[in-house]
């Protein structure tokens, strides 16, 4: 395949954390600091919550990890590799996507775009890719909407479609920016169910969230951000119950 971007897809460095962020500083285009010297470490198979008020830098952090923003200082390592070397392993769900919902494309095809990172230039989606997209739509309860134009959906349905695309990518590290904010109750239930399922599959999740009621029980680590600074790092805990294949990482220390 001819991969997108300059770098071939690299394999993970054995034994490293899924995500390692050290002293990360990110500036807005106008020079103000969006994020100051944030450090965190997410072992494979664990869940980390980013918590904080609006403007605290949660989205900025996720964007820097996703490669949408360039850090002013510090570094990000994804499975031991710099940003951009491991794109196929990372799925990112934007809080308010830049999706043009009036564009003439069906739900099915939008979900299928989650497979593109594995296809690269010139290759068309294969039957296996289509199957993955169908499975994911089934799982998120949007299979009956597959032929709809993406604009003819409710807000909750649109959010499911975007999460479906992120899942179709079959990434090991998922960056989710407020996945359950501003959606209906049904959608929230489906989404949280899917997130649980993902963790039981050993996927690593970094979630920016407002969902106070649930977060303590759900996450191995919680990072609080305020005005771009890390104010408090909760002690890392093993998963509850710990997924069998991530046990080896549970003794790792927070940075």
């Amino acid at each position: 395949m001819i991969p997108y971007g300059r770098h071939l897809h690299h394999d993970a460095v054995p034994g490293v954390a899924a995500l390692e962020v050290s002293d990360l500083t990110v500036a807005y285009p106008d020079g103000r600091t969006a994020l100051r010297e944030v450090t965190l470490r997410v072992p494979a198979g664990q869940r980390l919550a980013l918590v904080g008020p609006n403007g605290a830098g949660k989205s900025t952090l996720l964007k820097a990890v996703a490669g949408l923003l360039n850090p002013a200082a510090g570094r990000v390592r994804i499975y031991g590799q710099p940003v951009g070397h491991c794109r196929h392993r990372v799925a990112y769900l934007a809080q308010k996507g830049e999706v043009d919902w009036r564009f003439p494309i069906s739900v099915r095809r939008l979900v299928l775009t989650g497979r593109y990172v594995h296809l690269g230039w010139l290759r068309r989606p294969r039957p296996a890719d289509r199957r993955i997209a169908e499975d994911v739509m089934q799982r998120l309860g949007i299979a009956h909407l597959a032929d709809r134009q993406i604009g003819a959906l409710s807000g909750g349905q649109q959010q499911r479609v975007l999460l479906a695309r992120a899942l179709a990518q079959e990434a090991e590290l998922l960056l989710l920016d407020e996945p359950t904010t501003a959606v209906d109750v049904d959608t929230r239930q489906v989404l949280t169910g899917v997130l649980d399922e993902l963790q039981s599959l050993g996927r690593t999740l970094v979630v920016a969230t407002h969902d106070h009621a649930r977060r303590d029980a759900q996450y191995n680590q919680i990072v609080y951000l305020r005005e771009g600074c890390q104010v408090h790092l909760s002690p890392e805990r093993p998963s509850d119950p710990p997924p069998a294949h991530s046990l080896e990482h549970n003794h790792a220390h927070p940075a």
Partner: peptide, 16 residues
């Protein structure tokens, strides 16, 4: 098609 309706996602997967 992808860069037309979702340039942000395209950028995440490395498409300029």
């Amino acid at each position: 098609e992808l860069t037309s309706f979702d340039p942000g996602y395209a950028q995440v997967i490395g498409i300029k």
